[in-house]
Amino acid sequence: MAKMPVSITVNGQRYEREVDPRLLLSDFIRHEIGLTGTHVGCENGACGVCAVLINGKTGLSCLAFAVQCDGDEIETIESLGTPSDLHPIQEAFWENHGLQCGFCTPAMVLTAHELLSRNASPSRAEIIEAIGGNLCRCTGYQTIVDSIEQAAEQMRAGKEEAA
């Protein structure tokens, strides 16, 4: 199988690679460029664990080929906070015990990030709708909804303070 050139920007950095046309975006992110914060749970688009932001919208990286994302801008969990400087969403997940094993967490946080970027004050029903495609086997979801609700509040407060 002839390799194909791709140019994908991940977390602001452009990566030029020659890849198999069948290489999944999830494998490109994890194995070609070594960002292992994106996890893989089912590889058939049913669990949502591999979600990343593709041009600002959440997409399942196990359902896209890397070559389809040529020229795209991808954001992964590594683009948000760091352990010593958490993003407000991550801070809220920490405070509310919105994670246990942490395997679905990067996708949950990114999904929340996308939601809050288009809706600064989501209702609980809207939060549940947004994470409806992300499975979590540990938490029972309630504390995830709490986390996102609190993150929205804090981010609104932060913006008001800045204004």
Partner: peptide, 21 residues
């Protein structure tokens, strides 16, 4: 108290089995 495990898990720094390369 908040869990000590969480900061690295929240930021994608947790090392799971497929992250052993």
């Amino acid at each position: 108290i908040r869990r000590v495990e969480d900061p690295r898990l929240l930021t994608g720094r947790g090392k799971y089995v497929d992250d052993v390369v």
